[in-house]
Nucleic acid binder design. Structure first.
Lengths: 225, 225
DNA sequence: CAAGTATTCAATTGATTACTTAAATAGTCC
DNA sequence: GGACTATTTAAGTAATCAATTGAATACTTG
């Protein structure tokens, strides 16, 4: 075998390491979850409906492909995406899949069809409308994910607190809800609830990492008044 | 199992179809080759050092993931990338792998180390220098790949004709050679040969699809004088 | 140091995968 | 129609993979 061939084989073998990481549906889901912020193994197992041991194994694969990193914090191992480039890459994968695989469009359409339609997001325009007081942007993810990173000016009301905290929302303002991304159903559930209670509510189907990937600013930590 | 869970599972299963396509090194190589232009199965088998039957099977996988399309031309089946988005995606994969996997950088460095260093490309600047007559951009790929798509103003001299056609090149001009991409060695071989003959020669390690992905213009067909 | 907890590891299972060889299709050209 | 060609399919094999189970590791807290 020629040295050239050997070189090519080893180069493409490296590329395929990343490919292999994305070859298992659950691993892609784990990457999507980690795009919301750092998580322990147990939390990831819970969120992805995997056993803890199995989650640990998938994370090992991702770690060996350098897509995630682990930080030992005492008893816990906290995993996070190795790099913002990784979440951008997963976004690229998702857009390619949506463009090329009609089945994916069908699946998402079938699930959300009866509930709402989503409009393409224009970030700067949305922020202007927030500043003018026309719109409330609502982050319905768990609060810690909001703290990790959120759309500027968004309010945090986790989905499971929404019913109890409806009073905090003004009925005069349109509400735009978002959650983890297009395969997360929390924002859609929120919109359903809000509409039932008389609000004008819409959904953004993109998550914070998509927002960031579009080059729009995100806020970390709490909202400074 | 909840309908939510079922939805997520089927959505991520679709994403993983693309992932699985990239899980075999040879399939990534095939995509890279197809980024140079349409190819028959036999040609791809030759270029990727696979058996014809095996190549056909890999192509079937890629076709089922909608990454490539096939057009039957009489006796031949001609494969091509389904979409420019696909080659952009492979480029993204490559950049991610280079950023995250030190092994890949090592492998490429080890192979090219003794031969040349590559400078980052500034397309517009390169084209200006071509227009001023300071530089010749040399496309050393097979002529049909040049015809499919090439860097504007580039001259086509396939690597295996280069030795015989050195007379066509002016010794007063710097030569910048390119080929299929960073894992293709033709440009490096060309530079080695040219330097031995007294030329000032450099290499671009990106291919035409990377050039296009950067938003720079490419030329299809022959160069119009 | 003992009990408890979060995570990883090891061994096993059944399923999938890449590749080979050989046969089957489907088209071309005399 | 028969020989030839390019490609696909089928069958078989060895290797790899995802998931399960149960044990092992490593850290914390009393």
């Amino acid at each position: 075998m020629s040295p050239q061939r050997r070189f090519k084989d080893s180069a493409y073998e490296q590329l395929a390491r990343i490919g292999k990481s994305l070859a298992a549906p659950k691993r892609v889901e784990l990457l999507d979850l980690l795009a919301q912020g750092p998580r322990t193994v147990e939390a990831l197992a819970e969120l992805s409906a995997l056993s803890v041991a199995n989650t640990s194994q998938h994370l090992k694969v991702l770690r060996e492909a350098s897509l995630v990193s682990r930080e030992k914090q005492g008893l816990y191992g906290v995993y996070r995406l190795a790099d913002a480039q990784v979440s951008r890459f997963v976004g690229t994968l998702r857009r390619l899949a949506h463009a090329r695989l009609p089945e994916l469009a069908e699946v998402t359409h079938a699930y959300f069809e009866t509930r709402d339609t989503i409009d393409p997001v224009d970030g700067p325009e949305l922020l202007r409308r927030v500043r003018r007081g026309e719109v409330t942007v609502l982050d319905v993810r768990p609060h810690d994910e909001y703290l990790h990173e959120h759309i500027p000016g968004a309010r945090s009301i986790p989905l499971d607190e929404l019913r109890a905290r409806l009073g905090e929302l003004s009925e005069c303002q349109e509400i735009v809800a978002y959650c983890r991304g297009p395969y997360c159903v929390m924002a859609a559930d929120a919109v359903t609830l809000l509409r039932k209670r008389g609000f004008v509510a819409h959904r953004i189907d993109e998550g914070v990492s998509d927002w960031r990937a579009r080059g729009w600013r995100v806020t970390q930590g709490a909202e400074s008044a």
